[in-house]
């Protein structure tokens, strides 16, 4: 593959980040009726009614979001390739970032699938609907550590890029790396969703839902911004170097 084509795929993959963000918020959040999301303190009957009243939206939202969440994969793949360039021969952090990102997609997919299951027979036994809903929320809220590792690996690798910093072209500025680490550890309170049904640490609370999800998407936005900027810079560099090469090749 020539460099121009490769850079085009890189740019496309980096742009999958914002595409994931927009489709996730729209299908998973808005159509899936997850803003605000159902409270864990709802009774089984109330919960079943919630599915029955918004059946079309919820089904469409979760079925499509299981496809669109995979936009996260090309984005992670590009991130990993870029980190590998920083790390050189032993891409430990790049691999960790890749595995973490891939598993994040599986965690999100499984929970959305449980809600699609809950919406499959909405007139059936409400307790089964409640069970499927609980399963979905506990899967996505208790298994966040893959994403935490993904983000920390990314931040540590960019922070250690002494060559890029010396050249004045770090992948992300120092503050964005520390913000990434902060966003990654902001998921920890979500573990309390396994115990609490009311308050800020329940799965519909500020500290276990709105704030950590905001942090995740905030990181996604910041990282995408700097990744796209980085690809564009490398596209410009490649253009100018090929232009100078063709100039040199011309006979005097």
């Amino acid at each position: 593959m020539d460099q121009k084509t490769s850079l085009r795929f890189q740019l496309l993959s980096a742009c999958c980040g914002p595409a994931f963000l927009v489709t996730f918020v729209f299908f998973w959040g808005i159509l899936g009726n997850n803003i605000p999301n159902p409270s864990p303190s709802l009774s089984a009957e109330e919960l079943a009614l919630r599915y029955q009243n918004n059946l079309g939206e919820i089904r469409l939202g979760f079925i499509i979001s299981m496809i669109s969440v995979c936009l996260y994969l090309p984005w992670c793949s590009y991130l990993s390739a870029r980190l590998q360039q920083i790390e050189g021969k032993f891409p430990t952090l790049a691999n960790l970032q890749l595995i973490g990102g891939a598993l994040t997609v599986m965690v999100v997919s499984f929970s959305a699938c449980f809600w699609a299951i809950a919406a499959f027979r909405p007139e059936g036994n409400p307790e089964l609907i409640q069970f499927a809903t609980d399963s979905g929320w506990l899967i996505i809220d208790l298994q966040y550590a893959c994403t935490t590792l993904q983000m920390v690996a990314f931040a540590l690798c960019v922070l250690s890029d002494k060559k890029g910093q010396a050249a004045g072209t770090p992948l992300m500025p120092n503050w964005a790396c520390y913000l990434t680490i902060f966003c990654a550890v902001s998921f920890f309170p979500a573990s309390l969703t396994g115990v609490l049904k009311t308050g800020p640490f329940a799965w519909d609370g500020v500290m276990s839902y709105y704030f950590p999800y905001f942090c995740w998407l905030c990181w996604e936005t910041i990282a995408s911004y700097f990744m796209i900027k980085d690809v564009r810079r490398r596209i410009r560099e490649s253009k100018s170097s090929s232009a100078s090469l063709s100039l040199e090749a011309q006979p005097a």
């Binding site: 922070l159 120092n174 503050w175 790396c177 520390y178 913000l179 680490i181 902060f182 902001s186 800020p200 500020v206 500290m207 704030f211």
Partner: peptide, 22 residues
């Protein structure tokens, strides 16, 4: 220290501020 650590610290303190309010 590093400016990044101050960004981290300020974000963390903001979270605690929200927790105090809750």
């Amino acid at each position: 220290g590093l400016e990044g650590v101050w960004v981290f610290v300020t974000a963390d303190m903001t979270v605690f501020g929200i927790l105090f309010a809750l």
